[in-house]
Simulated assay, not measured.
Amino acid sequence: MTGTLTEEDLRRDTAAVADRPWQTVVWNDPVNLMSYVVHVFRTYFGYRPAEATRLMLAVHHDGHAIVAEGPREQMELHTAAMHDYGLWATVRKAPE
């Protein structure tokens, strides 16, 4: 082995990075009630009450929660929807 990367190695490495999912992150804010955040998570994402509450508590106590993972385009749609509901949300690449 010479230690140089082949074209196939570069394609495989590039594909691995591209396949990493993206995340929709909802951030804590001083405006929305906790009950409203649970309502949004249940209404939009279809989470059961316990999961919606768990995510809301993560937002409240940790300052943010990952509410969805998947392709970038879908996460951008989720983020826009959260904005429409009045929540602060961003899209980010999932960590390796």
Rank of each mutant, 00 (worst) to 15 (best):
F41V: 07
V91F: 06
V37C: 02
M34Q: 13
D84W: 01
L77W: 06
V31E: 12
T4H: 05
H39Q: 11
R11E: 12
V26T: 05
D29S: 04
V17Y: 10
V67T: 00
T6L: 03
L57N: 10
A65W: 00
A81N: 04
R54H: 10
K93D: 03
E76K: 14
T4M: 10
A80E: 15
E7S: 09
T6W: 00
E7G: 06
T53Q: 14
A18C: 02
N28P: 01
F45Q: 03
A52R: 06
H61I: 02
T6R: 00
A16Q: 09
T79Y: 04
F41K: 08
T90F: 07
A15D: 14
A15R: 12
S35F: 10
L87W: 12
T79D: 07
A52N: 09
G70E: 08
P71V: 10
L57P: 00
M82G: 04
T2D: 14
T43D: 15
R12P: 01
A89P: 08
L57F: 15
H83T: 11
M75S: 01
S35R: 08
T4Y: 08
D29M: 03
T4A: 13
V40S: 06
Y44C: 05
F45A: 03
T43N: 12
Y36W: 13
A68R: 09
E7I: 10
A80K: 14
R11F: 06
G63F: 05
T2G: 13
G63L: 03
H39L: 08
A94G: 05
H61R: 15
V67C: 00
A50N: 13
E73D: 15
P21W: 02
R92C: 06
V38W: 10
I66K: 02
R42H: 09
N28D: 15
E69I: 05
A58F: 01
R92N: 02
A81H: 03
H39K: 11
D84I: 03
V91C: 08
T53L: 13
Q23C: 13
V59F: 00
H64S: 14
A18S: 10
L57A: 03
A94S: 08
M56P: 01
G3F: 07
H61K: 08
D9L: 03
W88H: 11
M82W: 11
V38R: 09
R11A: 15
E76F: 01
